[in-house]
Design a protein around this nucleic acid. Structure first.
Length: 384
RNA sequence: CGGGGUGUGGCGAAGUCCGGUUAUCGCGCCUGCUUUGGGAGCAGGAGGCCCCAGGUUCGAAUCCUGGUACCCCGACCA
């Protein structure tokens, strides 16, 4: 059992655990004997703490919740494939659900997770021009297996160290979601992640006729798997509700008034573009279903267009500095491949190499700082 | 951990430098009337240990000393 320091000054008991790898690999040593025990995967959600000099809401907090996975494999290739697969899982979640475009890449040796042979990451660009690391996946080689003495007997009856990966994503993603889509009127949530996808607002108040129509619509929408709320609070006026639901990011609002009902229509407003349209009651469910899809797509395309507009190819250091200061965003530039140059650029500009993009084409060039030869561009940015 | 800033009804602020009627304004709250298709209008009303402790003074939100909380910037970093 663990005994909390009796002289501790804290009001509540607080126990800080060691880094996950030490717990996982100490345990894996007992679980793994044969190639038949492999592959092995443990996923966990855990709260972790970091000693941060400076915190930022959602992006960098002393304590945060994250999801982490740890795998063990019998071959290097299988572990690499796992690390790449998980990177793609995170990238898919970011792009298809959060509607947040990301660059898939690998970290430089300098930015690599301690103990990893290769660190993969996804990098997103926020509306203020700064980059955000949104998820990582590591190929750990045999480093942890050797450190914790985790061996297995292969099919060939040979004793070998296991190959490993680990990967994680945290509540930082919430910060990324907010900073990718929100505007001056508040939060903008992608339909796939919005707790309330559609809100129905009676104009100006919930009369029996309006409520009856609202209930019909709710039933039709729920049948199609759409989450919907009817706001029949009669102490708030419509304008107030419009602003309120925009602020909390509800993707679609349906307004129903006597004027609409007389025409057999309702007013449909979308959060992403603020457009309003009069839609016949009879095909409202199909219309909304299509609209939610369209909003989901539009949010991604809009964020991607912003990201692309703010990704600049640069070939000399003066321009590099100028773009960082005036425009921000990602910069694709040549780098000589050394940690020394990377550190120097960081010192001079606060920009770091976010990643070496996986889809980067081989292209001859010279390092923006040293002029030494380079074979491909890497992704620079100032980051959170 | 360094540098800077701010604590005033529920919220956001003015007043503080240069002490002096009853501490001001906006939002919110309560009551009434009128409104109601983009955050309602008018009238009336309630609500304050001016961050805490001590000091100076005839008199302190305001000056002095000490404390405390929060915010921003940097280094650090998922």
């Amino acid at each position: 059992g663990i005994i909390v320091d009796p002289d501790a000054k804290l009001e509540e008991e607080l126990i800080v655990r060691p880094t996950s790898e030490t717990i996982i690999w100490d345990t894996y040593r007992d679980w793994i004997q044969s190639y038949r025990d492999l592959p092995l995967l443990i996923n966990q959600w855990a709260n972790v703490v970091r000693w941060e000099m400076r915190t930022r809401p959602f992006l960098r907090t002393t304590e945060f919740l994250w999801q982490e996975g740890h795998t063990a494999h019998s071959t290097s290739q299988e572990a690499v494939e796992e690390a790449e697969r998980m990177l793609e899982v995170y990238a898919t979640f970011a792009e298809k659900y959060m509607a947040m475009p990301v660059v898939r890449g690998r970290k430089t040796a300098n930015e690599r997770f301690a103990g990893a042979v290769d660190t993969y990451c996804i990098e997103a660009l926020m509306q203020d021009g700064k980059a955000l690391q949104a998820g990582t996946s590591h190929f750990l080689g045999q480093n942890f297996a050797k450190a914790f003495d985790v061996k297995f007997l292969s099919k060939e009856n040979k004793e070998e160290y296991v190959w490993a990966t680990s990967w994680g994503a945290s509540t930082r993603l919430i910060g990324g979601l907010i900073m990718t889509h929100s505007d001056d009127d508040g939060l903008v949530l992608p339909p796939k992640l919005a707790p309330i996808q559609v809100v129905i607002v009676p104009i100006p108040k919930p009369t029996p006729e309006i409520t009856e129509a609202a209930e019909k619509i709710m039933k039709a929408l729920k049948t199609k798997g759409i989450s919907v709320k009817y706001d029949k609070d009669d102490s708030k006026r419509p304008g107030f509700k419009f602003a309120e639901y925009e602020m909390i990011g509800v993707p679609v609002r349906i307004g129903i008034g006597a004027r609409d009902l007389a025409a057999g229509k309702v007013e449909v407003a979308r959060r992403d573009t603020k457009e309003k349209r009069s839609v016949p009651l009879e095909d409202i469910d199909d219309y909304i279903k299509k609209l939610l899809k369209e909003i989901q797509t539009n949010l991604f395309e809009r964020a991607k267009a912003y990201r692309d507009e703010h990704t600049t190819k640069v070939d000399d250091f003066d321009t590099f500095k100028k773009v960082l200061d005036d425009k921000g965003g990602f910069i694709l530039a040549h780098w000589d491949g050394t940690t020394e140059t990377e550190e120097k650029i960081k010192e001079l500009t606060k920009a770091t190499i976010r990643c070496i993009p996986l889809n980067a084409k081989l292209e001859k060039g010279v390092c923006i700082l040293t002029g030494k030869p380079s074979t491909q561009r890497v992704l620079f940015a100032r980051a959170y």
